[in-house]
């Protein structure tokens, strides 16, 4: 009789269940379609959609670290925006040094300059993340209120230090030669840089997915998000894992900062904290701790912002809030709530 009991059988996922899981994936295409209907002009729509994807992917890059850090250690870093700003300024400095490369018409020189800028800013923000975690976050584990306050304090100090090093004024960032201007696709004017941003964003997303799904570190991160205690009980030091994730998350924020700086062509010390508004909206929409949710949320916010900037510019930011409210009405914990075993 015990034989029947342990005979393998799997509860088949019902159709409704599968739809529940897949439904968020449909949101971005639905949003794009709704945009097409509202805008009516396909060329304008294409321009805006590429812009939206570029913006969404850049926000995803910045938000991904924040959401995984939260999932893994229940730490919310309100100072995350500081890494975005610092990354942008470091990137700007490197690009300014390499002015000879960026003003060179050769594409390869331009790209090399951008990649060096990205590498430098990721290195700086990664190390900064290490310091931030050790000095600011580590003493306030398990205490949300203090985390919010202390990381906010860290943000203030970091922004002020940017003023000390780079001065208080907004700085103009010139895009390298070959990333300036636009191309015409199906009558739509598309900035080259946006295509570049989309490409980088997609590569990063796929890379991140690969790491999370197919490497041991990735498995540990996913397992740790669900049940950190059990990861420790299996013999892994989750604190060390967390430190690595925190550094990578900070470095990604720095990368996002460089990309955003080149996108906007202007950088300020408070650009990071301004962007945090969108980052938080994205993270909440996706479900705190969920990387897939974060990705979808970022695309939604990017598309919606760009469509609304065209349709009703005054309420663009408010519309993203409305989107967040709508999603939370539908799923109170975000698109992909992270299962916590506790």
């Amino acid at each position: 009789m015990s034989e029947t009991a342990i005979r393998p059988k799997l509860v088949a996922a019902s159709a409704g269940d599968r739809l529940r899981k897949a439904a968020p994936l449909l949101l971005a295409p639905v949003m794009a379609l709704a945009g097409l209907i509202a805008i009516a002009d396909p060329a304008t729509w294409l321009t805006l959609t590429v812009a939206g994807l570029a913006m969404g992917l850049m926000i995803f890059i910045m938000a991904s670290g924040l959401t995984v850090v939260f999932g893994l250690m229940d730490v919310i870093n309100f100072g995350h925006g500081a890494f975005v700003s610092v990354g942008a300024f470091v990137g700007f400095t490197v690009l300014a040094w390499l002015a000879g490369w960026t003003e060179n018409p050769a594409v390869i020189m331009n790209l090399a300059a951008v990649f060096l800028a990205i590498l430098a800013s990721m290195a700086v923000t990664g190390v900064l993340g290490l310091a931030f975690e050790r000095v600011i976050v580590a003493p306030v584990y398990g205490h949300h209120l203090k985390q919010i306050l202390v990381t906010m304090g860290g943000l203030i100090v970091a922004q002020q230090l940017i003023h000390v090093v780079w001065g208080p004024d907004a700085i103009h960032v010139a895009r390298p030669q070959s990333l300036r201007g636009s191309v015409i696709v199906f009558d739509a004017v598309i900035e080259k840089y946006r295509l570049f941003a989309v490409a980088i964003g997609l590569v990063l997303f796929l890379g991140m997915r690969h790491v999370l799904r197919s490497t041991k570190v990735g498995l540990l991160v996913r397992a740790g998000v669900e049940n950190g205690e059990m990861v420790e009980a299996l013999g892994y030091r989750i604190r060390r894992l967390f430190l690595v994730v925190f550094m990578v998350g900070s470095a990604l924020a720095g990368l996002g900062g460089v990309m955003w700086g080149l996108y906007n062509e202007t950088i300020t010390a408070h650009m990071g904290s301004d962007l945090m508004v969108l980052v938080f909206i994205v993270v909440i929409i996706g479900g705190l701790g969920s990387i897939e949710g974060c990705f979808i949320g970022a695309l939604l916010v990017g598309l919606l912002s760009n469509y609304m900037t065209f349709l009703a510019p005054k309420v663009a930011l408010v519309s993203t809030i409305a989107l967040m409210v709508g999603v939370l009405m539908w799923r109170p914990e975000g698109l992909y709530p992270v299962v916590k075993a506790k």
């Binding site: 309100f78 919010i148 909440i284 408010v318 809030i321 967040m324």
Partner: peptide, 18 residues
């Protein structure tokens, strides 16, 4: 409770812009 901090930050920024 942590949602509240993030949501209020977003709403307040949007309000200021509006």
């Amino acid at each position: 409770a942590i949602f509240f901090a993030m949501v209020t930050l977003a709403v307040a920024s949007a309000f200021a812009v509006l």
